[in-house]
Design a protein around this nucleic acid. Structure first.
Length: 145
DNA sequence: GCCAACGTTGGC
DNA sequence: GCCAACGTTGGC
């Protein structure tokens, strides 16, 4: 299982909206960046991701799961762009802010810090465990629920 | 709302 | 294939 982080501006697509979709999940559309797309192409069903609120909030608020592998993005006819589907798994009890991530030496190499503008990014297992710990999940999202 | 960082586009 | 212009992201 691999780990990822998805950024979304809450006024465009919020964690509340994602949760409202339930287990059906939703297409992660609108990505027009090759690196972000390549990350999505590498995802497998069951991979986990953090849901991060950018622009407003600036915090990791939830955990999602990949529920459909990369397929053409329905919002464009341009066949360069495809995307996965994700569904909400659980809230992060204590949302982890960007500030806290930056202040934690263990997370100094996180793409959230080093590749500020990348909207879909990989997370290492160690980073995943650390952010879960900070968020009050104690690693319980590591394995299939 | 500003602007730095950075990705993309297109002329040459 | 270089690079200037332009557009977008996202923290502040």
């Amino acid at each position: 299982m691999k780990y990822w982080l998805f950024k979304s501006e809450p006024f465009k697509w919020s964690w509340e909206q994602q949760k409202a979709k339930g287990d059906v999940g939703e297409e992660w559309d609108g990505i027009r960046n090759y690196q972000a797309r390549n990350n999505m192409r590498a995802m497998k069903i069951g991979d986990r991701g953090f849901f991060y609120h950018s622009n407003e909030g600036l915090d990791v608020v939830g955990v999602i799961e990949i529920c459909a592998e990369s397929a053409p993005d329905s919002t464009t006819d341009d066949d360069r762009w495809d995307c996965v589907h994700v569904r909400a798994l659980c809230d992060i009890p204590n949302p982890v802010t960007l500030k806290e991530v930056k202040a934690n030496p263990k997370l100094a190499d996180m793409a959230l810090v080093t590749s500020m503008r990348l909207s879909v990014q990989p997370v290492t297992k160690d980073e995943w465990i650390e952010v879960c710990r900070m968020g009050g999940l104690n690693g319980k999202t590591l394995e299939p629920l």
